[in-house]
Write a protein that binds this DNA or RNA. Structure first.
Length: 424
RNA sequence: GGAGAGAUGGCCGAGUAGGUCGAAGGCGCUCGCCUGCUAAGCGAGUAUACUGGGAAACCGGUAUCGAGGGUUCGAAUCCCUCUCUCUCCGCCA
């Protein structure tokens, strides 16, 4: 959510920055609505002030019959106040539902551009391996090793669900533990295990609602939703809080499954694990002082990269352009891992700073000085990493000509010492 | 699922024959005094949002005692609905 006062004072500047996202005018009608609300608010409040002072007067009069005229007068005033409050409530709802659908302002350092093709490569790490045979996609490797069963997943649930078996199931679990241990042990994050189901307020706090309801799984007969990312419950841990400045930055890492409807992606990535309705993810979330957020985003991104480095998986880091960043984000780095089976880089982590956008929605604040008024923190998060896609990368990069897969050394302790996955 | 109890400021905790209650008291915290240091003691201060005025310090208004409605000139206090927490019973991993 953007700052209403800011929009009031310089709407043109905000509109200009929003336009770099592409799309039509965002702020049409705001000014008129805002002023109408403000007028009504002021009028209503001065009436209430009158009523309060007269009521106090009445309280001081022993013989209420002496106050009959004033009581009658205030009866009428109260009626008017009631009407105004009702109208004000409507305007408030209109205004806030409007504000909740305006995306965040892109950060000045976000490259300008219209689409994915305008994203900028910031750096890359590791060289794609040269194969002496035709590298195969992970779905072939996984099915042949009998560690991924797509057909059974479809039987149990439907398309975009997968059953992992044996070393595959273990590999997924190993990756989760490996990532959690790295981020808690080396990078200073506190591990949390949140609910995988959240309410509407939480979804609104991070920006999934009200605009992206069709992307979510909602539980029938409730106001509960399956989380599409741990970002939602973890960021909302501090919804409504005023944090201590000295506690910042707060760093959490959480493993959760993620559930996404993937509406509108029919026909995309239909094979394999790349795009599932349910997938595992280890998520990094930070709450920072506004002056630290830029540096903290860099650090968080590097924390995510570290996973790939230790797993010896080549990747590149892309700065997303203004037309490609998400609704709530001000700036985003995507980490893309090299997938030899498909000869391309695929997103495996998305690290974003949200500025105060989420903090304002969820009211997450801190005080600069003991007595100064609360200010919004900045929130940052990123995958560290998407586990299913990491497994894909391990299979495709580690594949051998005989169909087996060599497990990265860093992972072997988590696999009971297993060095390679062989068909059994 | 059945029966009961409760939800007040950072925390604890008063406050039900409706008015002077943004809310006693205590703890905590901040500043000052005092004291070789520490502890104790003394004094002052200590919610948030919106809004008006002001360059600012600050001053004024409105709202908020779980949430939403109602009664009333006036509600933390009365009525209704909902949510959450706790205790007991049943069921269950």
């Amino acid at each position: 959510m953007l700052d209403m006062k800011c929009l009031r004072e310089n709407p043109d500047q905000a509109e200009e920055r929003l336009r770099t996202r592409g799309g039509a005018a965002y702020l049409d009608g705001f000014r008129e609505l805002d002023q109408k609300r403000l007028r009504l608010l002021r009028d209503g409040e001065s009436l209430k002030a009158l009523r309060n002072s007269v009521s106090e007067e009445i309280a001081g009069i022993r013989d209420k019959s002496q106050a009959q005229d004033r009581i009658l007068e205030m009866r009428e005033v109260s009626q008017r106040i009631k009407g105004m409050d009702e109208e004000l409530k409507h305007l408030d709802e209109e205004l806030s539902s409007f504000l909740l659908t305006v995306p965040n302002l892109p950060d000045p350092t976000t490259p300008l551009g219209a689409s994915e093709s305008d994203n900028v490569e910031v750096r890359n790490w590791g060289a794609p391996r040269q194969f002496s045979f035709a590298a195969r996609p992970h779905w072939e490797i996984g099915e042949e090793l009998r560690i991924l069963d797509f057909e059974c997943g479809a039987k149990l649930t439907g398309a975009r669900f997968t059953l992992y078996r044996g070393a595959g199931a273990r590999l997924e679990r190993a990756l989760i533990n490996f990532m959690l241990d790295l981020h808690t042990g080396e990078h200073g994050y506190e591990e949390v295990l949140p609910p995988f189901v959240v309410n509407r307020e939480s979804m609104t706090g991070t920006g999934q609602l009200p605009k992206f309801e069709e992307d979510l799984f909602k539980l029938v007969d409730t106001e509960y939703y399956l989380i599409p990312t741990a970002e939602v419950p973890v960021t909302n841990i501090h919804r409504g809080d005023i944090l201590k400045k000295t506690d910042l930055p707060i760093r959490y890492v959480a493993y959760t499954p993620c559930f996404r409807r993937e509406a509108g992606s029919y026909g995309k990535d239909t094979r394999g694990l790349i795009r599932q309705h349910q997938f595992n993810k280890v998520e990094l979330v930070k709450f920072t002082h506004p002056s630290e957020s830029a540096a903290e985003l860099e650090k968080l991104t590097q924390n995510a990269e570290k996973v790939l480095q230790l797993l010896e998986l080549p990747y590149r880091v892309m700065a997303l352009c203004s037309g490609d960043i998400g609704f709530s984000a001000a700036k985003t780095y995507d980490i893309e891992v090299w997938l030899p089976g498909q000869s391309c880089y695929r997103e495996i982590s998305s690290c974003s700073t949200f500025g105060d956008f989420q903090a304002r929605r969820a009211s997450i604040r801190f005080r600069e000085e003991e007595k100064s008024k609360p200010e919004f923190v900045h929130t940052i998060n990123g995958s560290g990493l998407a586990v299913g896609r990491t497994l894909v990368a391990v299979l495709e990069n580690g594949q051998q000509e005989d169909g087996s897969v060599v497990i990265p050394e860093a992972l072997r302790p988590y696999m009971g010492g297993m060095e390679r996955i062989i068909r059994r």
